[in-house]
C-alpha cells in the first residue's frame, strides 16, 4: 500500500515542483522513485520528528505542499504539539503520512503500534483524517491529497483485498463508501478492518443476517449522513477498527448515534485500552484481540442473539 502510494506521489512530484516529501529517516526503498526523479523535492531530516513537522509548517508558510512520513506513533505522538500548533493552528497544507495502522508492525512491539493516533488526531482543529483500506484506494488518496487545502492525516496499514476488479471504491474524502447493502445490521469499518468487515458480512449472511457494510475511510469529518440513513432502519450498528476502543471510529460514530437518538443495539469493536503481554504478528494479534473475521463474526452473532 505504502509503495503504491509513493509511486503515485512520485508522479505528482514530477509534475508539481512545489510538492515536497519529508521523512524522519524512515521508509527504506519507498522513496526511491521520488529521490531519483525529483531529488530536490525530497528531504530526509534525520531522526527528528518534531523538527520535521516544524520544517513542514515553515515550508508550507512559504507556499509549499509538504508530505511528512514516519511510523504512526512517532509522527502523531512524538510531534503531537508541533502538529497542533505549527500545522493545525495555522491551517496549513501539510500531509502527515503515517505507516503502521494498528498492529501492522506486530512483532516490533508496543512502541510501534498505531493504536491511539486516530483519537489524538481527531482532536486537532482543522485536521482531516483519511484511512485507505486497499492499494487502489491508497493511490486514490494520493491523487486527492495533492491539492488538499488544510492539514491531512493519511493513515496507512496493510492492504486488504476487496471490490470488483480491484478498482478504487473511495470516491471523495469525507463521503463514506457503501461496499455492501443489507437491512438487518450496519457494520462500519475503517482501514485494515474493511476487508475483515466484508468477510464478516458474508459469514453473517449464512445465518440469514443481512449486513450493510460501510467503509468509513474518512474519520474526520465523519460522514454523519451515511450513519443517519441507518438510524431508523437497522436494528444493530457495529464499528470495527484496528485502533484503541477509545476515541477512534467507534467513539466518533457513537457521538452521532447518541445525538440522533438511535434506539437499536450499538457496539464498538476495536483494541482494548490495556494490552496483554502477548507477542505475535498482526494476524496473530488480531486473533488474540478478537479482530479476526472469525472472532468478529462469533461476537456479532452473540450480540444479535443467533448463538
Amino acid at each position: 500500500m505504502r509503495k503504491a502510494f509513493y509511486e503515485k506521489m512520485a508522479d505528482i512530484a514530477a509534475a508539481n515542483r512545489d510538492v515536497y516529501f519529508l521523512t524522519a529517516n524512515l521508509g527504506y526503498k519507498f522513496f526511491d522513485e521520488i529521490r531519483q526523479n525529483s531529488p530536490e523535492q525530497f528531504l530526509d531530516v534525520g531522526v527528528a520528528e518534531q523538527n520535521m513537522i516544524g520544517l513542514a509548517a515553515g515550508m508550507a508558510l512559504c507556499g509549499k505542499s509538504v508530505y511528512c512520513y514516519s511510523i504512526i506513533p512517532f509522527l502523531t505522538l512524538r510531534a503531537c504539539e508541533q502538529v497542533r500548533v505549527d500545522v493545525c493552528y495555522h491551517n496549513l497544507p501539510v500531509k502527515l503520512v503515517g505507516m503502521g495502522a494498528g498492529f501492522t508492525y506486530g512483532q516490533e512491539g508496543f512502541t510501534h503500534f498505531g493504536i491511539e493516533d486516530m483519537a489524538v488526531m481527531r482532536a486537532m482543529p482543522n485536521m482531516t483524517i483519511v484511512v485507505p483500506d486497499t492499494i487502489e484506494n491508497a493511490v486514490r488518496v494520493a491523487e486527492l491529497s495533492e491539492n488538499f487545502k488544510g492539514p491531512l492525516y493519511i493513515r496507512l496499514g496493510r492492504a486488504g483485498v476487496h471490490g470488483v476488479g480491484n478498482k478504487a471504491t473511495l470516491k471523495s474524502i469525507g463521503k463514506a463508501s457503501m461496499i455492501r447493502e443489507g437491512k438487518d445490521c450496519l457494520l462500519i469499518a475503517i482501514g485494515n478492518m474493511v476487508s475483515v468487515a466484508q468477510q464478516v458480512s458474508e459469514s453473517l449472511a449464512v445465518y440469514g443476517i443481512s449486513t450493510r457494510v460501510l467503509n468509513m475511510h474518512t474519520l474526520k469529518p465523519l460522514d454523519g449522513m451515511a450513519l443517519l440513513e441507518s438510524v431508523k432502519t437497522h436494528k444493530f450498528i457495529f464499528t470495527l477498527e484496528e485502533h484503541s476502543i477509545q476515541g477512534g471510529l467507534g467513539s466518533a460514530v457513537a457521538e452521532v448515534l447518541a445525538e440522533a437518538g438511535y434506539r437499536g443495539k450499538f457496539q464498538r469493536l476495536g483494541i482494548p485500552e490495556k494490552l496483554d503481554q502477548v507477542i505475535g504478528d498482526a494476524d496473530y494479534l488480531w486473533e488474540h484481540y478478537g479482530l479476526s473475521a472469525g472472532k468478529v463474526t462469533r461476537r456479532l452473532l452473540k450480540i444479535i442473539g443467533k448463538v
Binding site: Y20, E40, L43, Q50, N51, I53, G54, L55, A56, A57, G58, M59, A60, L61, C62, G63, K64, E81, Q82, V85, D86, Y89, H90
Partner: peptide, 29 residues
C-alpha cells in the same frame, strides 16, 4: 491568524526555530 505583520503563531517554546528553518529552506529552494 490576526495578520498585521505577525508571521507565525508562537507561545509554546521550542517551535520557532524549526518553523523558521523550514521557511529558510523553502526560500532557498
Amino acid at each position: 491568524n490576526v495578520g498585521k505583520g505577525i508571521e507565525v503563531s508562537t507561545g509554546s517554546l521550542g517551535h520557532g526555530l524549526p518553523v523558521g528553518a523550514g521557511m529558510a529552506y523553502a526560500l532557498k529552494k
